[in-house]
Design a protein around this nucleic acid. Structure first.
Lengths: 177, 177
DNA sequence: ATGATCAATGCAATTTATTGCATAATAAAA
DNA sequence: TTTTATTATGCAATAAATTGCATTGATCAT
């Protein structure tokens, strides 16, 4: 279970609300960690109960109140100790591949449609990731050095999406042939 | 939820026991679907209750009894209908990337060790996938045509692992620098 | 004016997945 | 000879994730 640690990692950079975290999960972090809002809010509650984060309520005009969470010393301790242990290899469960694997029970149009729908999504993602990369590459060497590790995770997204697209194009050709 | 459908897809090819399925999930299908034995056995029970699969018990000498499951007409129906709908894009939750993202709280040796451990696993997987591909490429054109769709999923595994390795090597260099 | 989207959070119920424990026989390896 | 791996299955408890429903006030578009 590392939703907990994904949240702690984000809060270690800066205090945020559940909604802020949600946006981070949906945008920048989305290519390596996904979570729904309910999951985040529940987890924040648990983390606060365990004393790993602190909560303060901010009132806002015209908008609902905001609960801002901040990592505690104990939270940093938990995170550091988690980092010192090895993580499990990523579990892959890809329904699209299940569908292709059993695709002889349906028609090629259906499979091609599905592939092309996903293709669009992946193309969009890749464009976004490359835009983030362009920003990073314009930073000074010092700033680049500072954000080296997040950049490495961004590269994973880019190389991963490129490979996905290569595969999809190759597959579409193969199915059409 | 497509563990259900992953199982139906496998049973549509040939009747199998839970243990047989487990081996398929751990070997060939492992690069796109993972499940533990408890999950498979429970799901088989539910599928049988729903009449999507049938069960017959085979006695064996020297080994425990084997329950062989076979897909029913109703099961093929369910599978076909699932195939006609679109599937959700794959959800990625990769703890290794979370660790790297927050890696400034630990030391580079730790990160490099972790990356190299994963590297070994991915290398092994890639070798296995390539071996399967070699076998496929020796088939006659007719047989290749027949297994085209599973081959496409295999290609996903190969391209995915290659991209993973490229990324890891690049990342290791970047961290060492 | 009416519906849609964004900001912000939450409860409750259900579904899925994981962990821990348990059995039992055979064969192969240390 | 003792331990480990393989074959084969399962229950029970817990943990994690998903789905459905709900609120409120602002702004933005039709």
């Amino acid at each position: 279970m590392s939703l907990k640690h994904a949240i702690l990692v984000l809060l270690e950079t800066e205090p945020s609300s559940g909604y802020d975290l949600l946006k981070q999960f949906n945008n920048s972090l989305g290519y390596f960690w996904n979570a729904k809002h309910q999951q985040i809010y529940q987890q924040l509650k648990l983390l606060a109960l365990d004393g790993l984060i602190d909560c303060t309520t901010e009132e806002q005009q015209g908008k609902p109140d905001k609960k801002v969470y901040k990592i505690t010393k104990s939270g940093v301790g938990e995170l550091t100790s988690w980092l010192s242990n090895s993580v499990k290899p990523n579990k892959i469960n890809d329904a699209l591949l299940v569908k292709l694997y059993g695709g002889h029970l349906t028609n090629n149009e259906n499979l091609l449609k599905e592939l092309e729908d996903h293709l669009l999504l992946h193309k969009t993602t890749l464009i976004q990731l490359r835009q983030i990369e362009q920003k990073y590459l314009k930073f000074s060497p010092e700033v680049q050095e500072k954000y080296k590790l997040p950049y490495i995770t961004l590269r994973r997204g880019i190389l991963g999406e490129e490979a996905w697209l290569d595969w999809a194009l190759e597959s579409i050709k193969m199915i059409k042939k």
